[in-house]
Each structure stands twice: as C-alpha cells, then as structure tokens.
Amino acid sequence: MALMAANPTILLTNDDGINAPGLATLRTELTAFGDVTVVAPESNQSGVGRARSEAAVVRDHPWGYGLVGTPADCVAYALRGLDTDFDIVVSGVNSGPNAGNYVVGRSGTVGAGIEAAFLGTPALAVSAYHSTDFFLSPPAEYDFGRPARIAARLISRAVDVGVYDDVDLLNVNAPVDAPNPPVVLTEPYHDYGQDVERLEVADRDTTELGVDAGELGDDEHVVRLRDRTWPGVVGWENPFPPTDEHRSRYPVGTDRRAMVDAAVSVSPLSVQHASPDSAALAEVVETLDTE
C-alpha cells in the first residue's frame, strides 16, 4: 500500500448519530491533517452491526451528509455513491467501549469499518471508555479528546508503515480519563452469555418489546432475550474494575484486560472469513452419501 497522501481524504462516520460529541471531536482532530467528509446516521444506530438497508434518505449537512440508515449504509453510500476516492474510513468516537468478540460483532461502530474493508478501503473504529465510570453516560459530560487524538495518530502511522497490507480494520478502545495510557496490541476476548426469560400471562404488557400480547394464541408465549455481553454487570456499573480478580480473569493481550489496566486497546481484525483446516470435515465430505 502506498504512503498516505500529505492531505488524505477521510470518510468519517459513527453509530451514535451525526450530532454525537465523539464524532465532532474526532472530526476536529482529523481535519488538522486531512480532507474530512462526514457521512453519518441521523439518529443513534448502536448495536446494529453491519446491517444494511435497501434504501435510505440522504440529507445535506454542513460537514457532508446525514443518512437515515445504518453506519454500514453510510459507508456504502460514501464509497460507491460519492465522487471521492477515500484513503481511509474512520468510525467513532463511540460513546462506550466495543470490546469482546461478541460485542465487536454487534457494534455499529465496528460494522462501518467492516463494510469499508469489504469494499476495499482501510478502516479504523475507535471507541471511548472511562476507567472508573466505564460507560460514558451522558456523553456530553465527557471529553473525547484523548481517544480522538490517539485515533488520528494511529491512522497516520499505520498507513505509512503498511499495516493495512495485512490488516483490514483496526478496532481501538481508549480511556478518556487516563493521563498517559499505555497502548497494547490485543485481540477480542471471547466472553458472552444469553439469558432467556419466559414472561407469564400476568406480565404480558409487552408493548416495550414490540409484541401485542393481547393477540397471542393459546399455543404462543413471549420470551425476553437478554445478552450478557458485560459479565456481572448490574445497571451501569463498571464490568472491568482494576482489581486482582479481574486481572486474573482476563488474559494479558485481550481487549478486556487492557480496559482493566486503563490502557488503549488496539485489535487488528480481518473481514476474510478464513476456513480452518479440518481433517474430520474433509473425511465427512469425501464419504458423504447423497443417494
């Protein structure tokens, strides 16, 4: 890959919406060394992953365009619908971390980067967390400056030394409060669970779940599905406090351990769904009876 141009063309998007403070802060950092076009969702699209829409409304915005759709829609529109050859796609700064293998797969922030990589453009997704508060709520009360600066510096150096020759996407999680956080090369940690709760007849006021319980038949029931993406969390508490227990739970080199240590986690990702070698599967395929 060629070195980044002196004034690179940068596509900036996110999943928190075009008016999110993290995007505004990152735009300020990126415009210091590049030509930035914003194409971002008009409303919050957190947790949509790489979902795409069949059609989307696009509206002019002082920074570029607002799009009534998902982060992946924004990237697809910008890379194939605008007359601009973008050097890199940057997504963020997300309000809250995107760490752990399952969370990364659900993230709209990361989903934008994955869409970019499939379309042949290098990408970086950056998310912010607070080492004590963890979740940034409300976002307007936090300073996204450090994650934005870190992302800008990573972009420049990663492109210039050829990181994207081997990597499709960088997923970055950076603390907003640590004054001089270490930067750690990581991989997403596999840590996920699912709770399934059957709702009783007396609890069938399920409007919030998008279900009209009054129309249920005798052979139907409602279940509530809850992801357990942050282990042991009640409400908005920090799932990764800096304790010996949590340091022993998450191995060094994982993104979640980096957050326990209030570090910057940098995870290189690939969108190529590589096929692992499996002698057992090869035998099954070779001997499968299709009569």
Rank of each mutant, 00 (worst) to 15 (best):
G64T: 05
Y65R: 13
G66L: 11
G66K: 13
G66N: 11
V68N: 09
T70E: 12
P71I: 01
A72R: 04
D73S: 11
C74R: 01
A76S: 15
A76P: 15
A76Q: 15
A76M: 14
Y77D: 07
A78I: 08
A78Q: 14
A78T: 08
L79F: 14
L79Q: 11
L82R: 15
T84R: 15
T84P: 09
F86P: 03
D87G: 08
I88G: 07
G92K: 07
G92M: 01
V93M: 07
S95R: 05
P97I: 06
A99W: 02
A99D: 02
Y102N: 11
V103P: 09
V104Y: 00
R106N: 14
R106H: 15
R106Y: 15
S107H: 06
S107F: 03
G108T: 06
G108W: 09
G111V: 01
A112P: 12
A117F: 11
A117Y: 11
F118H: 15
L119Y: 14
L119M: 15
G120V: 03
G120M: 12
T121M: 04
T121L: 06
P122D: 06
A123H: 08
A123T: 06
L124F: 04
L124V: 13
L124R: 00
A125I: 02
A125P: 13
V126F: 03
V126I: 07
A128E: 14
A128R: 10
Y129R: 00
Y129N: 01
H130T: 03
S131W: 01
T132E: 14
T132A: 08
D133H: 10
L136R: 00
L136Q: 00
S137Q: 03
P138H: 04
P138T: 00
Y142D: 00
Y142G: 02
D143Q: 11
D143I: 04
F144A: 04
F144K: 02
F144C: 03
R146V: 00
P147T: 00
